[in-house]
Amino acid sequence: MIAVFSAQQDALESPVDPRFGRCAYLIKVDTESNEWEAFINPGTSQSGGAEIAAAQFVIDKKAAAVVSGDFGPNASNTFKVAGIAMFLYGSEVSTVKQAVEFFQQDKLQAFS
């Protein structure tokens, strides 16, 4: 499964970024093979509509799940229509690597 994580830096060891629309990087992870790739979030450079730009990017990467600290109404509505599952980091997760492990162990809280 492809999952996308919001991150502060472009590495798996990066601290997670609790913001979705304005996170620095979006890290795409194949949760079966653990292959990953980091992308600059296209939302950060926008004066407005950052959430939508980031959400469109996640959709275009064919993700099935997205993980961040929270989701605003525009992003969450878009993901609902797209059928992409949203999960929250919660307080126990500090790096993307940890978040991937939590995700694989079904320990992340779903966003509703």
């Binding site: 939508i52 469109q56 525009n74 797209a82």
Partner: peptide, 23 residues
């Protein structure tokens, strides 16, 4: 339409175009 919108008021999800009026 999604590509040309400078304000990200549109998103493409599968075969659907979503409009965000407030943007």
């Amino acid at each position: 339409c999604v590509e040309v919108c400078q304000f990200h008021a549109l998103a493409k999800v599968g075969k659907t175009i979503l409009v965000f009026p407030q943007l």
